[in-house]
């Protein structure tokens, strides 16, 4: 593996905060070969730890997944309270710019391999907020998305179906968007910085 020695500029950070974050450019980690990766992918698919980002109306549809009626635990999915430990990032609907900043931050704190499930038409094309001054239109220009669930708002069954689809993708080894994010890092950063005007965080939040 080639070591990437590029440093991030972190232009927006003041000098006295330089000691508190890491300048290094994130690196892609290639998946392992053969049956080991298949086995790991099987484990990943059957143990989806969800970080529910309660933006918009999707948050209210995520809660019923825990209840007896929908019971996501039987598929090995579980909610996880911190981005460090989770692997599925669920964007629960429209994302305002203020939220997008937190979304980017949380997404980058999740350790690879990480998957994103976006709920609702708001994350796909802006939905009914397409002409809002403060709501982004499509989330996949800011973070890579593995699977979308359509609807306004999708019901819990639809969310479960989306998560099952994500499990299939992971088992087939197609959910490598975390590496895609690093490969197109400059493009994503440019898009993010285009809308987040007061960028007062490091360029990559480790």
């Amino acid at each position: 593996m080639k070591k990437d020695n590029r440093l991030l500029p972190n232009k927006d950070m003041p000098d006295f905060e330089r000691d508190y974050f890491c300048d290094a450019h994130p690196e892609t980690v290639k998946p392992l070969k053969g049956f080991i990766e298949k086995f790991l992918n099987w484990a990943r698919a059957n143990s989806l730890w969800i970080l529910g980002f309660g933006t918009g109306c999707g948050a209210i549809e995520l809660r019923p997944l825990m209840t007896a009626r929908f019971d996501m635990f039987r598929y090995g999915m579980a909610p996880r309270p911190t981005p460090r430990q989770s692997c599925v990032f669920v964007i629960g609907g429209y994302a305002s710019i203020k939220t997008l900043k937190r979304i980017v931050r949380s997404y980058e704190q999740i350790q690879a391999p990480k998957f994103v499930l976006a709920l609702g038409s708001c994350t796909i094309n802006g939905g009914m907020y397409f002409d809002s001054y403060n709501t982004i239109n499509r989330i996949d220009h800011y973070i890579p998305v593995d699977a979308y669930v359509t609807g306004c708002m999708p019901r819990p069954e639809a969310i479960i179906a989306g998560l099952r689809k994500l499990q299939e993708l992971i088992k087939q080894g197609k959910a490598e968007k975390a590496n895609e994010y690093i490969e197109n890092f400059e493009w994503y950063k440019a898009n993010q910085k285009k809308v987040i005007k007061d960028w007062n965080m490091p360029d990559y939040n480790w």
Partner: peptide
């Protein structure tokens, strides 16, 4: 007890394999 089906009893093992299989760490 809560009327759910619940995870299989080997779920902790899958969780551990998955957490060991994370590619990056800080």
């Amino acid at each position: 007890v809560q009327g759910r089906i619940g995870p299989p009893f080997w779920q902790p093992f899958i969780d551990i394999i998955k957490t060991y299989g994370k590619r990056t760490a800080v």
